[in-house]
Amino acid sequence: MSLLLLRLTIGFYSVGLLHSFLTIITRKKTLFRVALAGICVGFLCHLLAISMAWFETRHPPIDELQGVLSFFALMIVLAFLLAYARYRLDSLSVFVFPLAFILTLAANLTSEPSQPFPEILGSLWLYLHVPFIFLAYAAFFVAFASGLMYLIQENELKRRRPQAFYYRLPSLEVCDELGYRALSIGFPLLTLGLVAGVLWQAPWELDKKIIASFSTWIVYAVLIAYRLSEGLRGRRAAWMSILGFILILATFFGTRSQGSAHPFIQ
């Protein structure tokens, strides 16, 4: 049942993908309302799918790759919907919808046989660690996307010859503010997620993923500290948000931990 719902979700998200695709090709906002409706329905469907999976397996479905990818996609859509409700930023959809689609599709394709539930994972801390980390990742993705929009719009303004992006993208102020908001939501969540991870694993051994996670944490800590103390903003802040998210991707997909703590990245 949950698998069926997940497939349905992919169907709804694909409308969003189509919107992003057409919008990039025609350089015009295309099908946005339909896509937004699709994403909203898809989100509910997705939420239901994850709840069903929880009900079916009797534990939160976030301890293998499939569940984690699907949860990540859900968090990203949630972050988009929140940002959209506040700023009416339809341009963000071009970044968010394809990622949500790809992650959900990947979750659906990697239907690896349900692994025996590793003993090390059966802890309350895990169930705090994973959601916090992925909520943070979703927020950082929004920061990444707004950084990208900032850089494109800044380039248009600096060149003084407006082209299609100038008309479609939001103002620098909004990109910057959204990026900052996303960071200031994402950073505490990342911190909590890492703390929960430490408590869950204690006594802990260093795996590559843990090292990479802490490096990411430091990058974001530096970024936020700079912003608060010296007013780092604009172009450089945008670049740092982008760098931070690349580090996150590296942490998530790049490090293959040998231990059993993050076994889903084999």
Binding site: Q153, P170, S171, L172, E173
Partner: peptide
Amino acid sequence: SAAVSVSFAAVELARKIFD
């Protein structure tokens, strides 16, 4: 949506920067 006089273009640019 796009301004077609110089003074409106200036206002529009200001909005693209400061919102």
